[in-house]
Design a protein around this nucleic acid. Structure first.
Lengths: 208, 208
DNA sequence: GTCTATACGAAGATAGAC
DNA sequence: GTCTATCTTCGTATAGAC
């Protein structure tokens, strides 16, 4: 009872998420996490015996859970199209408020696949899977077929992540605005056709 | 006349592209580039007075031009939908052949935005712009309106880049296959409606 | 164009005191 | 839980010979 534990640990994980978003995985050193969080240097390996890898791992999980919550919150409304607009708006606002300095921490970890810690990439993959599942459930709930729901969910996550990378590089919201518009129309169209055209799935293209 | 220059320089740039794809920007050190290319250590700053930053810069430009050529080549056929399938197949094949070890070098540079070399991110942005322009021109050529063409181009690039990141993290082609299918159908639908439904543009969603 | 040697800083991790 | 060394490795960059 009573707070015997300090909050250093959670502050470090939170700071790691922030630094991953802004500077990428390799640049997120223990030193910078300590400076950013104000946590004491001496207790790093007390809290994280797995060292830097464990710290990044927990940051990925935290950020993954957070965004899964955002998806749940935005998509539970009556109109999934409106929820989708809000989902993209959350990302766009993050870009604008940071003046295009911050991106997605999961992408940062996924891209810097390190041979030393290969399982970090899989943690990132698990987070993406979770987000896809959340969107898939929403689309299914609104009457879309299983296959179509999964494809749309993959497209939404991929397009959002790709757009965020492009917006940062171009210092412009144009890519995510364009993507949001196209996804909006696509989802509206898919939902309007849900009752009759179900057995006309998109064919799998020959990726020859 | 006669080859007074060695090929060390271009081999270094080429190796840098490969290492960016596989390990990310920060992990692409001069040492690793030298090892990978077999170039002599002594001439690094002779060929690249701007040091590591110049090396990465030139790698971004090389990779950007290369993929722009791929887009031109695949999309110049009669059927842009078929060309799009091929475009995604190129990326999917790169993932499979490398067993999900390599991604996009432009994304690698764009994500690891470093305060030391902020203009690297803009070079990445310029490459993305070039790819978008190439797709936009193709869509316009096939009768789509300017706005729609730009939006679709942004979606294609964003979805491809996002899907590649997801595929690597999940060690699966599922995301890019799903994205390719959805983009295939979307493009086919857009082209089939191009003559009559032009003045019904997708509305810009309120990203409230 | 290429060599070796070296300066300098930053990183991850561990040891042992308190 | 936190502190202060300290070890080791690796990174960029430069100097000066050949």
């Amino acid at each position: 009872m009573s707070p015997r534990k300090s909050d250093s640990r959670e502050r470090m994980v939170s700071s790691t998420v922030t630094l991953l978003r802004e500077y990428g995985a390799s640049a997120t050193s223990i030193d910078r996490v300590l400076t950013h969080s104000g946590a004491p240097r001496g207790s790093v390996y007390h809290h994280f015996p797995g060292g830097r890898t464990q710290l990044v791992e927990e940051a990925v999980e935290l950020a993954g859970r957070f965004m899964a919550g955002v998806i749940e919150a935005t998509m539970q409304a009556d109109d999934p199209v409106e929820g989708m607009d809000t989902f993209f708006a959350v990302w766009r606002d993050g870009l604008v408020e940071s003046r295009f300095r911050v991106g997605c921490p999961i992408v940062a970890v996924a891209v810097e696949t390190n041979d030393d810690a290969p399982h970090l990439a899989r943690s990132a993959g698990a987070v993406f899977s979770g987000w896809q599942e959340a969107f898939t459930a929403v689309f299914r709930r609104h009457g879309l077929a299983e296959d179509r729901s999964r494809r749309l969910a993959a497209l939404v996550v991929a397009a959002e992540e790709g757009a965020v990378v492009m917006c940062r590089a171009q210092q412009s919201t144009a890519p995510i605005e364009a993507v949001a518009t196209e996804i909006h129309d696509l989802l509206a169209h898919a939902l309007s056709n849900r009752s009759h055209a179900d057995p006309a799935p998109g064919r799998t293209p020959d990726l020859h």
